[in-house]
Structure formats: C-alpha cells, structure tokens
Design a protein around this nucleic acid. Sequence first.
DNA 1: TTTAAAACTAAACAAATGTTTAATATTATT
DNA 2: AATAATATTAAACATTTGTTTAGTTTTAAA
Lengths: 204, 204
Amino acid sequence: MDKKETIINSAIELFSLKGYEGTSVRDIAADAGINVAMINYYFGSKEKLFESIVEHRASFLKGVFEELINNKQLSGIEKMDIIIDNTIERKFSGLNFHHIMHRELALQHRPQLKEAISDILLRNVTSIKNIIEEGISNGEFKQVDIELTLTTLLGTIHYLLTSDTLCRKILGKPKSFKPYQNKNLKDRISIYIKNLMRDHLLKK
Amino acid sequence: MDKKETIINSAIELFSLKGYEGTSVRDIAADAGINVAMINYYFGSKEKLFESIVEHRASFLKGVFEELINNKQLSGIEKMDIIIDNTIERKFSGLNFHHIMHRELALQHRPQLKEAISDILLRNVTSIKNIIEEGISNGEFKQVDIELTLTTLLGTIHYLLTSDTLCRKILGKPKSFKPYQNKNLKDRISIYIKNLMRDHLLKK
DNA sequence: TTTAAAACTAAACAAATGTTTAATATTATT
DNA sequence: AATAATATTAAACATTTGTTTAGTTTTAAA
C-alpha cells in the first residue's frame, strides 16, 4: 500500500479514538510502522496531516444525492427513505471520520478548519433540503421547518452514535452490546426515523 | 470568591473551548490568575481536576424532573412541552459544560469517566422515558419507540448547537449570527420540537 | 504572642511533544 | 555504471507538558 495512505489510515484511527491533541505523531508513526520523521517529510506538519485527511475525505463524499434530487419516478417520502438509509449506513461504517469531524467542530481553535469541515457536512444537508423543499412545493409535505427537520434526521442518528457507552445506557443494553456492529440497531433506527418523518412531513 | 471555584470556572471555560488535552494547566492557572502549583495543591492532578468538575456539576443537575413525573394535573404532552423548554434552556445556558461532557464521551480513553458522564446525561433520559411511558400506558400517546424518541429530542438540540459554524451554515445565517445568544433561535427550536413531538406522539 | 497549620510562590524536574538535521539507503534517470 | 533525486533513518533540537520541591507568607488557634 501507499505509505502516505498508511499514515493517513493510522492517523484517522488514532485521531478518532483519542482526539487530535491526544494523539502524538509518535503514536501515529508506531501504528503505521514508519519513522516519525516521515510524517513531516510527507505532510510537513501534524496539522497539515490533519488537513490532508479532511481534504482526502471531502473529495470522496461529494455529490452523493445528485441524481436522487432530479429523479421524477420517486415520491418525496420515498426519496427521504433513501436518504435516511444512506445516512445511517454512512454513520455506521465511516464512523471514525465522522467522529473526528464532529469533535473538531466542537472546539474553538482552527477556525478555517471548522469552515472546511462544516462545508463537507453541509453537502448532504443541502441535498436533503432540496428534497423537502420540493415535497412542500408540490403539496406532498406539510410546511415544516425545513432546516430543523433535517437537523432532527442527522441529530438523532448522530446523538445515538456519539458514544457507545451512552448509546448502551440509553437503550438499556449490556456492556457486551456493540452499537456500531449491530444490524438490529441499524434497522431499528431506520424504521423509527422513516416513521417519524412520515408523521412529521406527510399531511394527515 | 472561593479559589477552588475560580480554578474550576476557568477550567470549564478552557476545556470547553480547546478540549481537555488542548488545555494546559498553565493556561488554566493564567486564566484563573493563580500559581500553577495551586492546581495540584487543591486537586492533586489535572485529571482529578477534570473529575471534580464532572462531580461538581453532577450533584447540581440531579432530579430536576422528579415532581414533574408525579404531577397529575398536566397531560403527557404538556409535560413534554416543559421538558423540551427545560432542555433547550439548559443547552443554551450551561453550554460549556455540555460541550465538555459530549466531547469526552466521544473519545475512547478514560472509560470510567465516560461511565460517570453517561450517568449524568442519563438522569434526564430516564425522566423523559417515564413520561413517555406513562403517556403510552394511559392511551394519550401512540406506541412509539421510546428510547429513540428521546434521542430525537436531545439529538436535534444538541446537533444544532455542537458548533456555531455548522449551525450558521445549516440555517443559512451570516457570520455575525451568534446561535447561543439568539432568542429567536431558542423559540424556533422550541416551537419546532413541540410540533414534532405532537406529530409523533399524539394519536391522529 | 507564640505556634502550627494552611495557602501560596518561584524554580526545578523529568518526560513528552512536534520538528529538524545530517547521514545513509533506495530508486530512477542518464 | 555513474549520477541525481527520492525515501528512510537515528539522533538531536527546543518547547511544552504535568508535577514536585523547598521555601515563604498568610491565617488561625493556643
């Protein structure tokens, strides 16, 4: 594998587990099995390594829902279903990177980085917004608060998956319960949010 | 003011802005206007200072909804309204501390601390759970997924307030918009979630 | 007023941090 | 095969980290 890629993978892993400040370049080097100096050789600095990761994933995530928005076959609520499942899927699998982004967002330093991260997260937001807007204008949906509705969608999933410890406690599950590997939980969230969105969006 | 209190206040402020690892004891000492050694003198270590903060607030937040649960005058949905406004109020004001707790939760070290934090957050969870359960059993509410419903309540508010940058972008507001000081936003969230909970909980 | 405990300080401590250096090895080019 | 560019290394660098020490001042009790 590419050595730069190896470093990035180790860095994502460790940043997500212990945070940016909590992870030393020596930790990363050890995990990646390379010399510490290689990090500065390839990326310039620890901070630029972090920025590389953000850019690396940014290009990876762009425009997922483009064709969905323009699809004329599906109803608004059917499109929402697809978005919901897609969002859940991404939160469950690409978990590490989401962790890093949200934690950095919650800090007050590196404001330019926060801008970049927000923009990445905003891509999905805009897609969802478009679909709800369309549903409202063609009379399928009620006139809901669009921005807060999509916040509910993202917030519900995110809150439950911020911490395995909290997730277990909320759901009343034992220590052995591993949220991120649990298919039942995935299905349960999917059914719940689809239901919630029907209650909230569709006219009675 | 009590000197221990001064240290705790500075620590909360800085931990919430820059994170636990990102804040040095010298930062805290400078902000509190005291000698670095006083932190270890009073608290023993940086880590124990952190734990003190958690305990300090834990005792502060206990049993807020006790009497609300046993109230026979109010309907289930009226109780939910009170819980919603209370939760919003706390998120907007006691913001710093919530920031710290959630960020620590998202990390994988200090597992015993995560347990403690989860337990604090769980107190509200249990109260809300009781109220929804009661509403279901007396026929006022539909048979919803209780745990996920309260996750929606907490998650929506929390997601929007994790980051001022993201919040502004989601809502399409200018740089000058300060989410945490905005009364309009507070009202907007309140109206929205009350509405959402009515759609979701009440029988049609 | 003497004495003991508590509060506080400046300085030093060892360990860990991100980064750079200078030397060596590897790879690619001519 | 000689040369140049790239990759890799171990060691050293200066800072910063949390903590401790040893000494001083302040406060309270006798």
